[in-house]
Amino acid sequence: MEKGKDMLPLTEAFYYILVALYVEPSHGYGIMQEAERMSGGRVKIGAGTLYTALNTLLGRGVIDNYPVPEGTDSRRKMYAITDEGRAVVRAEISRLEELLKSGKQALSIGEERGT
């Protein structure tokens, strides 16, 4: 579980790539579309950003190559999240939950005090 903790915090692009792959293996274009859909069109991952992120994630062992289904374009590589990658996503989500909780608490205390 501790492994990969040094990757935190994730950039939005890294986060959405891993979250998209958490659901199912995908190819690069599928990841881009999924990130855009999940973020309501806010996060558009450019080709260069995606390519370098995939290389980094492969190098760190948090994603892996996934066998391309028969009969599809073999140049279009597919990727799957690894157990390590899942641990990174979970660690990042708890980090984000803590941030969210602290922030919301501070807001409600501030409102109670009428400041």
Partner: peptide, 13 residues
Amino acid sequence: MSKEEYIELYRDA
């Protein structure tokens, strides 16, 4: 990644 795969990824985008 090979150059072909790189080009394919950009083409997809």
